[in-house]
Amino acid sequence: MWTYLFKRILAVIPVLLVVLVVVFLMLRLTPGDPAANIAGDAATSEDIAELRIELGLEEPLPVQFAIYVRNLLKGDFGESFYYKRPVISMIADGIEPTLSLALFTIVLACLVAVPLGTLAAYKQGTWIDRLVMGFSVVGFSVPVFVIGYILIYFLSVKLDWFPVQGYQHIADGIGGWAYRLVLPSTALSVIFIALIARMTRTSVLEVLSEDYIRTARAKGLPQMKVLLKHALRNAAVPIVTIIGIAIAILISGVVVTESVFVIPGLGLLTLDAIQGRDYPTVQALIILFSVVYVVINLLIDVIYTLLDPRIRY
């Protein structure tokens, strides 16, 4: 197990190298000049040329790449072209809102989706099942921003139950923090509820026809125990997989939600950085997202072994 973990962690290195090269080249090969962006509309071409030298953009690409990697190895992600702040501190600022939003959303999604999916499987073919699956189709089809604006319109503007937008740091009070996360998390969770509920239903349905479910019933266990203790745990592997993928998508995919609800997280930062051609920031964010993907995948694989004793590495 430990050798396996070690090997998996080592495998992150080539992944990151590829990501690094691709991102680095993509940013520089797509049109748009950060220097022109920073200098503004009134700048002369001399100003821009000077700025380019200052930012190190006049060096040949391989040299730029070498400098970047050397700095990375020292733990230096560089400085934002725009804000003149170390990228790492900007990410540190943005990570709390994003993580909060992502975790809040995924916990909410799981709490709703897993029971819903299990219920649908248990009541297969009844109106409950059809209702859950109907909801799931709707959840897939409606974009996040539509749900977000609908929620804001009714719950904030009309009923005034929740703030329209904004974020409160957890350090300034947990109550306010959670209160402000309710709307954005709900909006964001809809599609994940749809996804996870569907997966749960399919997986539980498959398990319910297994022989050991019949054995559990023959033991005289009540239906609830059969469902929770015997069915759900055996159905868990695909469900956990989809939850893991959901978390990864969430963390790197909060851009839209954060802009709808004006949450100062990584999503907004990414949006700004891309629009402003802020190379160091974009690069750092994408490295971060890749690491998150890899770590979550690893975690899922470890959780498999806890759920199913037959899985060993």
Partner: peptide, 23 residues
Amino acid sequence: RELRCTRMGMIFQEPMTALNPVM
């Protein structure tokens, strides 16, 4: 449910699949 396993017990054909694999 009360009677199962207390007054009447049952064993099945496929011992390979009749036991819960994760318990």
